[in-house]
Design a protein around this nucleic acid. Structure first.
Lengths: 181, 181
DNA sequence: TCGCACATGTAACGTGTTACATGATTAG
DNA sequence: CTAATCATGTAACACGTTACATGTGCGA
């Protein structure tokens, strides 16, 4: 999913500036399944405006810098929905953690234990964050999406916790540290 | 995780040509959490050779084109393990499916039902594939990684199946098709 | 005979990230 | 006084994908 489409998605639900879109994408409900940074959002919005899929107006604020608020047009809405209706690509999962897991036999035991615990804690934190978000956001679809994310994260955490020992046991024992730096 | 590191990972477990690495990455056990294509693997291998992290030898075959078999060096192994021991980035999940789910209220009901069923079937297929791979591959770490993948996929499928109706119910009912093309 | 599997590589292209440039206000 | 938040934008750079170029042998 490219940044262009992500911008349309955010604007579909209401006006926003580039700054605000980025915030929603990085910190908000979208953050678990899409990605975008300033350097891609601003050019994308400029092109969307050029193409007539969004309109822009400048809002002067006192104290804060002026912002450029974008709103989606009818054409923009149609294009976005058309895109959603097209056959979807598969979800993709990219994991350094699993690569790490595949090579535990080559890595020191304490490091393996540490990383597994960190990962478990990271997931726990994400689950808590999600719970907070769920309270603010009450639209049924958003709850569904959060529920999906929660189900997957919980499964991952349970697996890591339940099978921690198996990996730690096959990791390199005490001898001098591999990969010391 | 960049292609360079992925190549080192595959070569860590044994010699391979660029073609074979790509096959393992696209069809093999790695396919669920990394990605790489020819256009990135061949240049990456050339650079790795230049840097002395792998060595290459050409093997002439009759009937088939000659292949260039790469092997990892001691330096390559060390560099790879050093990389694994460094703090890891978070796993990332990118999903067009969840974007679709967030906008079901704007999409025709039949399409929503169809996509949910497709997704459920896709996951089922992946789970079966994984089961086959698990039989070939018996190293404990590989089983652990597969088990992790299976746990997550199963959770996702269960969620989709159990909450299918909730999404379908809030999708656009019968009126003229949105996003017609 | 057509297309696929094997096999390597390059070039054009797209897309996105990081860092830089700029600047005011507010909270610690 | 310092860092963070608000706010927009550009340019250099990294990275990877897609398509192209090339060629053989095998099975349908």
């Amino acid at each position: 999913m490219n940044v262009r489409t992500i911008c349309l998605a955010v604007l579909y639900e209401g006006e926003a500036s580039g700054y605000e879109i980025r915030k929603q994408v990085v910190e908000g409900d979208y953050s678990y399944f899409v990605e975008a940074s300033f350097g891609s959002i601003y050019p994308a919005l400029a092109k969307l405006e050029e193409a007539g899929l969004v309109t822009a107006r400048v809002e002067v604020q006192d104290g804060k810098p002026s912002k450029k608020i974008y709103a989606i047009t009818a054409t923009g809405r149609r294009e976005f929905l058309d895109h959603l209706a097209e056959p979807m690509g598969e979800d993709q999962y990219r994991s350094e953690f699993l690569m790490f897991a595949r090579f535990v036999t080559e890595l020191p035991r304490e490091l393996v234990a540490q990383r597994l615990d960190e990962r478990s804690a990271d997931i726990e934190r994400k689950l808590t964050d999600m719970q907070h978000m769920l309270h603010k956001n009450s639209a049924a679809q958003d709850c569904w999406v959060m529920g999906f994310g929660r189900a997957c994260l919980e499964a991952a955490k349970h697996y890591i916790d339940a099978h921690r020992a198996e990996l730690v046991d096959i990791a390199r024992s005490g001898d001098r540290a591999e990969a010391a730096e």
